[in-house]
Amino acid sequence: MKLINKKNMLGFLAVILTYAIAGFLIDKGFIDSYIFLNIVLIGINIILAVSLNLITGFTGQFSLGHAAFMSIGAYTSGILTAKLGLPFWVGILGAALLAAVAGIIIGIPTLRLKGDYLAIATLGFGEIVKIIGLNTDYIGGATGLNDIPRYTTWTWLYFCVVVTVLLISNFIKSYKGRACISIGEDEIAAEAMGVNTTYYKVLAFTLGSFFAGIAGALYANYFYFIKPDSFGFMKSIDILVIVVFGGMASIKGSILGAVLLSLISLFLQGIPELRMVVYAVILFLIMVYRPQGIIGKGEFKLFKKRGGLNANNQSK
């Protein structure tokens, strides 16, 4: 538990070096705008996947509405930077805070639900956010919000990714994070050991939403233009797929999963007509042959076998 040791130092060096080298390559034009666009997407997906992993992988709460928090972040930053002309850091912070507040508001009532039911409720919430977005003229309705300044640079992107990964990794090593993991493992035992499960579920949900909001801000301020449809149910599924593909409750897995799946979809763009069909087949094969993900850690609660309808009364 020492602050500075060899491993920490090496990690720190690697982080700085990656930043400097990539920054240099971008500056000198070795990384062109097309590659950079994909780097931005990978970075955003890492933030989304790591933050959803906190909710679903570690805390075991099945969410199908993560994209909604991203969208809240994207619109918040869009409004703050485009409409109000505020600097990017205000946009990011506002995005994160508003998404977090939404996380609290949604989390408190819905996190009483379990398993599939929670998944459905969060899905419903995501759709509601989308529909409200579609019908709100101030933010452009269905046509979307335009002319958002492009503030997302390599530095901002890298900084946000590193901060997200670092803070969430730190969090899960704290007693609060342990409490969250224990809920994912066995809610009844966690409660019996003094863990206020409602509080920690909401905490995980709020933190996850906070970072999803940051991802939204980075997205909005890179693509100039956002519309509610970009943050629908399928986007939430995409994030969940990264988490499962990478490995539940594995931060490294989420990072790796985000990179690999972004690369896969990059290659699939070569066959536009069959892109989604091939993607579907790949998903299917992963679920059949590697359901525990690249870095799978074994049987988690949500990973529990389903059995029959009576699955929840045979636990004696």
Partner: peptide, 20 residues
């Protein structure tokens, strides 16, 4: 019916006991 946190280490299981 033993309710340990199966995927957590033995140490982490006991540390959850310290939660309060």
């Amino acid at each position: 019916n033993i309710r340990l946190f199966k995927n957590m280490s033995v140490l982490d299981n006991v540390l959850i006991g310290c939660h309060n």
